[in-house]
Design a protein around this nucleic acid. Sequence first.
DNA 1: TTCCGACAGTGGGGTCGCAAT
DNA 2: ATTGCGACCCCACTATCGGAA
Length: 508
Amino acid sequence: MLLIDVVRVSEAVTRTSARLGKVGHLAELLGRVGPDEAEIAIAYLSGELPQRQVGVGWRTLQEPPPPKLAATATLTDVDARLTRIKAVSGPGSQAVRKDLVTALFAALTSQEQSFLTRLLAGELRQGALDGVMIEAVAKSSGAPPADVRRALTLRGWLPAVGAAALAGGVEALRAFRLEVGRPVAPMLAGSAPDVATALQKVGAPAALEWKLDGVRVQAHRSGDDVRVFTRTLDDITAQVPELAEAVLGLPHLDLVLDGEVIALHDDGRPQPFQITGARVASKLDVAALRETTPLSVFFFDVLRLDGRDLLDLPYEQRHEILARAVPPALLTPRLVTDDAGKAQEFFTDVVRSGHEGLVVKALPSPYAAGRRGAGWIKVKPRHTLDLVVLAAEWGHGRREGKLSNLHLGARDPDTGGFVMLGKTFKGLTDQLLAWQTERFLELADGPTDGWTVVVRPELVVEIAFDGVQRSPRYPGGMALRFARVLRYRPDKRADEADTVETVRSLML
DNA sequence: TTCCGACAGTGGGGTCGCAAT
DNA sequence: ATTGCGACCCCACTATCGGAA
């Protein structure tokens, strides 16, 4: 199959707003792709690469060579070239990679170049990713969507699942099994503003578990072999030896556990996420790092034990099995209750102990991986500040032509100026985007690089955020974590905004 | 007919490893 | 030694579609 066939379908998908219409376009293409190219087509049309990543990003794709006029590239050819690009390494590799990318793009039409650029940059923007492709695979193969989804949970990679479905239908999908050593798509949590709302969503009684601000891990053990995977299914076994040792210390030779690793202080309080994140990301000198920054692990679920797959069991039963298989010190602190008061008290406790919040879990829910379903709901405390808009950046995609990303500042009473604490584009409705675009252009002040519009610091905006972290980037040495807009405060002047001192007092 | 769950899109701060400067 | 780049940890929120109620 030619790349242009895929590109044309992608363009049709982009033009179609209805999801069923998108599914129709995708399914039609899946109906005519050959078995040897099915995986590539499914990957490309769901925003993935068969290679997962190839070391080529947005920057490398600037200034493409002149396009060809005739589309001749096949999926197999493009895929083989990307495999070669991924394999390049060592001194001189950047130039070699750039040359290979240039040669690849020189063989493409401008339509194909545009598609591949967006695909490599991870910004397909056709309004269809995994969720829509699951439906398309189902439609084209004749298998129920639930079977496709189920196989994806177990296999963790839609192109492989889709290709199997197209070749072997529902039988092939039902042949997928949890395989120890190969990661399962992790179950994700929705969110709620408070514990009472979360309890209402999942039903009482419910389990409340501490939400630790670390890195999600899925640990697989087969005999003496342990593998550890992240939420995106990357293998981090080598970075977390403490975890492998903990799992090898358990009396079960065959198991799959779900949990969180986190760096703690000696008193058990959590280190800032930056510390845990840096520790887990470090591959060099892990032996020295584990002395200075040891990791602790806490499990909250079990997906397999001694030859038995447990995903379909109710959470309550899985947890009973977990609690028998794992010593209490390795279990995530937890409370089962139907009492809203006790639940609230548990939330207060976990926050006071320095942790992130709670995950509220429905007792009957199976391990429905990969969906932010209603089974698990996270609850975190929320801080707010009144900050001043210092500048705004032009948006992309559906925010094209709108000033979107806000630069936020706190008041500095010493200088009479403002100290930037980060940016946010979150929480804005279309109406608010339109209003602020107009307003900022009135307030525009100073030179613009065509990207950022600096404004007179007059507008006060109420910002919600999860915490204040150390920043090497911003002048105050601190930045807001997960900042989002709640509302503008027309009733407040800039000289009534919160101060850097107030922000600093929150950084602990 | 209205409601609500699932999905895609829009980007945020921080850190690491590697190659280039 | 520092910088640029790609990748990947953590993530919140809104708009939209279409099935459920």
